[in-house]
């Protein structure tokens, strides 16, 4: 081989390597921008809200006096609304996903449904608010209650759960389905003993992503008439006397953290800005801990799963 052709090889390699390296740098910059923005946001909010981040803030109701105002009703409201959302969206979403992926015949109709479900995930949340206003509040007469709010957000989360369920099921190799069928399993046994346990980690991730979106939603809840000022808690679900469980809380009026934040931010008094920042920190803490739980559960479920 002549030295000139060796030289040509050398030049070609170093030129291509340069392009590879350049892309790595661009990618790294992109990540840095995203991370720095996130850290700056959180840091700024924590610093601003720091004076209010105490027990008193968590255990007090909203108040015209910013010094004693708290977020008790808001965070309890957020938790209860999320509880309703999970209870409604997860079983329905998983069932729909399993049906579409494992039972439904693959034809133009199922393709159409698939496209629409995927599109539903991108519908602006305010549209769900309008739907809920007409359906839950006026048609079913559920009022401006925790139940209405939870179901509204469930509509929002549902497409995400359906889509991730389908993707999780699709990731399971056919060899495992055939192995189960070859053992004489029925379709339901195959789904319940194999598909659902193996895909639960991924489905859970989808559920959490959906909930993370829902927990910060304001628009659809304002649409159905969430209160911005509330000074009492819903009735406790656990009762001291028979039958010990009460569902009265479902009918209670409510507020949630993002609405409380919005309310404070729009106040003229500067002290309320501190309250808003502190509420924001709590909201982010709730979201992050939910994500953390999801990562932990996924790790636990996926441990030892491979194919």
């Amino acid at each position: 081989m002549t030295s000139s052709s060796l030289n040509a090889i050398h030049q070609s390699v170093s030129r291509r390597q340069f392009i590879s390296q350049s892309f790595a740098i661009v990618g790294l910059l992109g990540i840095l921008i995203a991370i720095i923005t996130l850290i700056a946001l959180i840091l700024q909010m924590v610093l601003q809200g720091a004076p209010k981040l105490n027990w008193q803030f968590l255990t007090s109701f909203a108040d015209p006096d910013p010094a004693i105002a708290g977020i008790l009703a808001a965070w309890v409201g957020t938790c209860l609304v999320m509880l309703v959302t999970v209870t409604a969206a997860v079983p329905i979403g998983i069932a729909a996903g399993v049906y579409l992926e494992e039972y439904a015949k693959k034809n133009w109709l199922s393709d159409l449904i698939e496209i629409n479900v995927t599109n539903l995930a991108g519908v602006p949340s305010i549209v769900y608010g309008l739907l809920a206003l007409g359906l839950f509040k006026y048609y079913f007469n559920l009022g401006e209650s925790i139940l209405t709010a939870g179901l509204t957000l469930a509509l929002l989360v549902l497409p995400v759960v359906i889509v991730t369920t389908r993707e999780a099921l699709r990731a399971i190799p056919n060899a495992l389905r055939e192995a189960a069928y070859a053992m004489g399993a029925s379709k339901w046994q195959m789904i319940a003993h194999h598909l659902l346990p193996y895909s639960m980690g991924s489905i859970l991730t989808g559920v959490i992503i959906g909930l993370s979106r829902a927990i910060g939603e304001t628009a659809p809840l304002v649409t159905i008439g969430a209160l911005t000022f509330i000074a009492f808690l819903p009735e406790s679900p656990i009762q001291p006397s028979f039958p010990f469980i009460s569902f009265e809380w479902l009918k209670a009026p409510f507020t949630v953290l993002p609405i409380q934040m919005f309310n404070w931010v729009s106040r003229p008094e500067i002290e309320f800005q501190t309250n808003a920042a502190a509420a924001g920190v709590i909201l982010i803490a709730m979201t992050l801990s939910m994500n953390g739980l999801a990562i932990y559960l996924r790790y636990r479920i996926r441990k030892g799963l491979k194919w």
Binding site: A175, M183, H193
Partner: peptide
């Protein structure tokens, strides 16, 4: 399939314990 068993080209054990893999056919029944 309850009377005719099958072994596939690639080993395809379930992502479960050794015991549960063998017990699976009995559990299905």
């Amino acid at each position: 399939r309850m009377r005719v068993g099958m072994v596939f080209q690639r080993p395809n054990p379930f992502p479960k314990s050794i015991f549960e893999n063998v017990a699976y056919g009995l559990r299905v029944r």
